[in-house]
């Protein structure tokens, strides 16, 4: 699997984190996204006309939708450890995967405005992310009461991996973790997963 990667993009980190936690190797092709905007040059637009990263290539496959990439990498894991076998739990996982990749794209946007000179209103975006993190924190509080520490059940799933970067990186656009105690404990569990890796902005507590 080839990942067209930019180290500072959280969406690329999501894929690297998943591959690492599933003990799979990715061939990284580093793209000069900032300040070069290489993903918007002709060769890259041929791979992804949307002009975005990450892009995952594997044999004849070329994927550019984040959920599709994550699901594919999770399914290539021989153990399929992050895909629940139970259909209801799998549906819950897909529900939260959608929250992570679709709804929480405002967090990616907020961070890009704060750090990478992208256009946008960081105050308005931060307020939206805060509302979404409240939803996550409310949910994790209920999960914990049920004895289920992760978003879809008792064990970590693909949605947990996909959600982690947005929460871990929100200080980059000045949204603190203070108001989300359940999410803070959950994030600590994710940090302890076997194969966990960090990216710039996510501290490595050496």
């Amino acid at each position: 699997m080839i990942l067209h990667n930019y180290d500072l993009y959280e969406d690329c980190y999501r894929v690297r984190l998943l591959a690492s936690c599933t003990e799979q190797s990715l061939e990284l092709i580093n793209v000069n996204a900032f300040p070069g905007a290489e993903e918007k040059t002709a060769p890259y637009l041929k791979l992804n006309p949307l002009g975005r990263l990450p892009i995952l290539e594997d044999k004849d496959l070329c994927l550019r939708n984040l959920s599709a990439i994550l699901l594919y990498v999770a399914e290539q894991d021989a153990q399929k450890r992050f895909i629940p076998k139970d259909s209801a739990e799998r549906a819950r996982m897909m529900d939260w995967l959608g929250f992570a990749c679709d709804d929480l794209s405002v967090a990616t946007e907020a961070r890009a405005v704060a750090l990478l000179d992208a256009p946008g209103d960081v105050v308005a975006l931060r307020a939206k992310v805060r509302q979404l993190f409240r939803i996550l924190d409310d949910h994790l509080t209920r999960q914990s009461l049920k004895g289920e520490p992760y978003v879809a059940g008792k064990t970590p799933c693909l949605a947990d991996i996909a959600l982690f970067p947005a929460f871990a990186l929100c200080r980059d656009f000045n949204l603190d973790h203070d108001e989300f105690p359940a999410a803070r404990l959950w994030a600590r569990q994710i940090r302890m997963l076997s194969g966990f890796i960090t990216m710039p902005g996510i501290p490595d507590y050496h």
Partner: peptide, 16 residues
């Protein structure tokens, strides 16, 4: 400033 159970041993959190 916090619920006791939410500050597990060996962890920290910010508040105001």
């Amino acid at each position: 400033v916090a619920l006791s159970k939410m500050i597990e041993a060996g962890t920290s959190a910010g508040t105001v």
